[in-house]
Design a protein around this nucleic acid. Sequence first.
DNA 1: AAAATATTGTTATTTTTTTAACAATAAGTT
DNA 2: AACTTATTGTTAAAAAAATAACAATATTTT
Lengths: 206, 206
Amino acid sequence: METLPDKTVERLSQYRRSLNNQLAKGKEHIFSHEIANLLHITSVQVRRDIMLIGYSGTLRKGYDIKELVDLIGKILDTDEGQKIAVVGMGNIGKAFIHYLYEKRSKLKVVAAFDVNPEKIDKSYADVYCYHLDKLKDIIAKENIKIGIITTPPQVAPEISDKLVDAGIKGILNYTPKPLSVPEGVYLEEYDMITSLEKVAYFVKKK
Amino acid sequence: METLPDKTVERLSQYRRSLNNQLAKGKEHIFSHEIANLLHITSVQVRRDIMLIGYSGTLRKGYDIKELVDLIGKILDTDEGQKIAVVGMGNIGKAFIHYLYEKRSKLKVVAAFDVNPEKIDKSYADVYCYHLDKLKDIIAKENIKIGIITTPPQVAPEISDKLVDAGIKGILNYTPKPLSVPEGVYLEEYDMITSLEKVAYFVKKK
DNA sequence: AAAATATTGTTATTTTTTTAACAATAAGTT
DNA sequence: AACTTATTGTTAAAAAAATAACAATATTTT
Ligand SMILES: NC(=O)c1ccc[n+]([C@@H]2O[C@H](COP(=O)([O-])OP(=O)(O)OC[C@H]3O[C@@H](n4cnc5c(N)ncnc54)[C@H](O)[C@@H]3O)[C@@H](O)[C@H]2O)c1
Ligand SMILES: NC(=O)c1ccc[n+]([C@@H]2O[C@H](COP(=O)([O-])OP(=O)(O)OC[C@H]3O[C@@H](n4cnc5c(N)ncnc54)[C@H](O)[C@@H]3O)[C@@H](O)[C@H]2O)c1
């Protein structure tokens, strides 16, 4: 299948979560406008996304939730699951690890790295924290393909380079330091302060 | 001034941070392509954004960093600063409070709310945590206009309603539960899992 | 002083994303 | 059985965002 638009991929992740909730409630079929209401978007958007992934519902009955969830899984997940490394075991890093630990998902944090001796050689929610020096070895050994950076911003570029060098193919950067990665590595950045300043701006405008 | 595009606002926040770094290093002028390099975007984008806020540089000399930072401040900040409430003093809530505490910024968290007795009536990084029941009173008294939701997802809609009812004009939602707010309230949502699943998808595609 | 260069500011074009329009049709109603 | 309604799937249009093109011009070089 063609590579899906960024925004569609984001929504698929959200559809799946909501659909799983509905499944858990015993619901078996769902209409596009029902999905839309759950996510506070429009039903056209839902139908368009579903069209893009090549699924069809039945007229007057809607979509088979189970089938749709499975298909989204086929698109978003790999069969074996994907392994993740977290670099920087501070507030955000730990929060993330705990959070993912609770979910049974195809995405698993399997290693953490830090430089602070207090954090190293301990486990948090079953994730072992190694010294940064071990990064390349562990990533290779475990075949980890995704890295999350939650270190202080100053060191983020250096960590990013190390991750890329170790063979990582996707990076999620939570530091406010913009990174650059070579072609072939997918980079997603998020900055909480930017979000907050954006809200503040639009509040001010009102 | 016209309301700026969402994306431009996001970048202004990032420009300011980078520009402040440059100021601290003693740099006084900067070219569009230099800003672009710092943020790993294109210089056209930078010039276009700067055009939109109505600033002009000088040919062959670039932009006066101090002036640009001040102008961005005029656009993003209010003179008195803006007050923020955090609801849910868990991992993310606490991380945010600590983080903003370190920055001297026009954005200040002035109150936190929770329902867990262990969190209530204590201060974290100078932010006092009240019982949720006091939310309306404190928000009115302090004239808080922005709320950050970091509670468990199930209660997010209820918290959102309470915030809106208390007069909040902007909400930043970190729970994976989509919210809806009335016209006139600005809502920004962010979901870490969605980001991560997006990275995973594009890694898989490669 | 003329030519070359670097850089801005702006308009035009392209791409991406969202929204609207609507034809097709299964199911329900008269 | 004919009619109405609800809903999908898809194409078309609109809106938003990014990128490209380029004219204007201050500075530097020849
Ligand atoms: N906490 C927030 O609410 C918040 C908000 C916005 C942005 N951020 C950003 O997110 C990032 C993480 O924030 P946090 O609050 O978790 O920070 P933190 O200080 O709690 O954690 C940072 C961790 O990184 C480790 N570290 C330092 N240097 C390292 C290195 N070279 N290699 C590996 N690990 C290293 C530290 O030992 C520490 O454990 C920071 O960049 C921060 O600017 C945080
Ligand atoms: N931690 C992560 O990495 C992560 C990742 C993705 C999403 N999230 C989401 O972010 C949110 C916060 O995560 P967290 O790890 O900080 O959770 P947490 O459990 O550490 O904190 C939640 C806090 O909310 C409080 N709370 C519960 N009910 C409340 C109510 N009715 N009113 C006010 N406060 C209430 C709890 O007492 C607790 O202090 C959750 O919705 C979670 O799903 C977290």
